[in-house]
């Protein structure tokens, strides 16, 4: 996973999810997300490389989008990934600024 946004930068930030991410990388992913949590501009999450993703990582991404949305900030989901979509659907998680519950 890579991100090319810098904390505090006014430019849009991008975070690219890797081909296979799992609980093993969850702690590192959380730290990356935290650096982008308060980014003032749109944070784009690129999913196109994703083949495998597990519950731990999806949970993090869900919390990230929820928290940013509640703070009036935007997360954009970019790139089609059957793996990501199937995983999210299996868990019943909806990404992409539909109804997000209050924390």
């Amino acid at each position: 996973m890579t991100s090319d946004g810098h904390p505090g930068s006014a430019a849009a930030a991008t975070m690219r999810l890797g081909r296979n991410t799992s609980i093993r990388e969850a702690a590192a992913i959380k730290q990356e997300l935290l650096t982008l949590l308060d980014h003032p501009e749109t944070v784009t999450v690129v999913m196109s490389d994703v083949e495998g993703i597990d519950t731990a990582v999806l949970q993090l991404l869900y919390a990230f989008e929820r928290d940013r949305t509640h703070a009036g900030r935007v997360v954009a989901w970019h790139g089609a990934s059957a793996g990501f979509d199937a995983a999210a659907a299996t868990l019943g998680l909806v990404f992409g600024a539909r109804s997000i519950e209050q924390p």
Partner: peptide
Amino acid sequence: TRALPPLVELDPECCYL
């Protein structure tokens, strides 16, 4: 997802769902 805490407090290895 009501039990899912804010990202700052979330333990990445725990399941809250």
